[in-house]
């Protein structure tokens, strides 16, 4: 019986795929047919809309509406039954746990963005001169392919702690003990636990930054570097005065992308510490308020705060992109 119901389910899935994608194709086909009957003038005006409307409807249904509803909920109480005005926002900006989350997020933003872009840049420039460049790049890029949860699991082993005197199974503590130090509770010691989490994100994002920056570095004409060398620039001066200014737009794009990613981070915190011991970030607070404490009002308010924080970054990014396009 189990088998039969499984097969039915599979058939159902296949049917859904066929009907779903077939339906879309049929929709476009029919719409196209109808529009093509029109006289040329209105046709050229209507035709683009025929193709765009389904996508816009989807975006509206799955992006715009939920956003609006979240904003609405953020002004309501925990069960979304009565209006509470700005209470949820006041909570978001005054609650002690929230303030810690804000502080942590700033730490994350500054350190992850700064270190992974900085490291990525240095590696991108260095790797350009290495014989086994593809191999070196692949190794550094590899963590990018690992999910945040997967990475967190790996790093739990790195940070694992056993009481002094017992065998350390965590790599870092094994090294610490071997060097004659006490083992450190990486994830419980409040002075290091945030940095331990941030290190994971840096490990994940450096490869991403490096790959994009490396292609930008390769885009610098060799002649220009040589001209600088003949002008008397040292390698260090070339890096600061030629390389960095010439790839500045890529640096901005990479930085903003990482900033957006960091603002959204919650999985690493969730898996490693559960946000305990002062390691919460805004997104993990949001999940907690929303799903652990079932306070939809507060959860939504935090979500809106996050959304507002992302907007200026996105605007910068889009502006940059447009500038780049215009410069082509």
């Amino acid at each position: 019986m189990q088998d039969a119901s499984n097969i039915m389910r599979l058939l159902g899935a296949i049917a859904a795929i066929i009907v779903g994608s077939g339906g879309i194709i049929a929709l476009f086909y029919v719409a196209n047919l109808v529009v093509n009957r029109l006289p040329p003038r209105p046709r050229s005006q209507i035709l683009p809309w025929v193709y765009m409307v389904p996508a816009l409807v989807m975006l509206g249904a799955f992006l715009v509406l939920p956003t609006l509803r979240t904003i609405l909920l953020s002004f309501m109480d925990r069960r979304s039954q009565g209006w509470v005005g700005l209470d949820n926002y006041i909570f978001a900006f005054t609650n002690a746990d929230m303030l810690i989350a804000f502080r942590n997020n700033v730490l994350w933003l500054v350190l992850v963005t700064g270190v992974s872009v900085g490291l990525g840049l240095v590696i991108a420039v260095l790797v350009d001169r290495v014989k086994y460049e593809p191999l070196a790049k692949a190794l550094i890029f590899l963590p990018m392919a690992i999910s945040f949860v997967g990475a967190s699991v790996i790093w739990r082993f790195m940070y694992a702690y056993q009481p002094p005197g017992t065998d350390q199974i965590g790599l870092l503590n094994a090294i610490a003990v071997a060097l004659g130090y006490e083992p450190i509770g990486w994830l419980v010691n409040k002075s290091v636990n945030n940095f331990a989490l941030i290190a994971i994100m840096i490990w994940l994002q450096t490869g991403f930054a490096m790959v994009l920056l490396s292609s930008a570095v390769k885009g610098i004409p060799k002649d220009v570097i040589e001209a600088a060398r003949i002008d008397g620039a040292s390698e260090f001066q070339i890096f600061w005065r030629i390389t960095i200014p010439m790839i500045s737009s890529t640096i901005v794009v990479v930085s903003t992308t990482i900033i957006v990613l960091v603002l959204k981070v919650f999985d690493i915190v969730f898996v490693m510490t559960g946000g305990n011991l002062d390691t919460d970030v805004i997104a993990s607070r949001m999940i907690k308020e929303m799903f652990n404490f079932r306070n939809f009002g507060r959860g939504s308010a935090i979500a809106v705060v996050l959304l507002l924080a992302v907007i200026p970054v996105m605007v910068t990014n889009i502006r940059r992109f447009q500038q780049q396009e215009a410069n082509r």
């Binding site: 004409p221 220009v224 040589e226 001209a227 060398r229 003949i230």
Partner: peptide, 20 residues
């Protein structure tokens, strides 16, 4: 190194610094 040779060079592509 080039900087110790007291020479200047004009490249085919001119190799001007685009950001300056």
């Amino acid at each position: 190194s080039p900087r110790e040779r007291d020479i200047a060079m004009v490249f085919q592509s001119y190799a001007l610094y685009p950001h300056m």
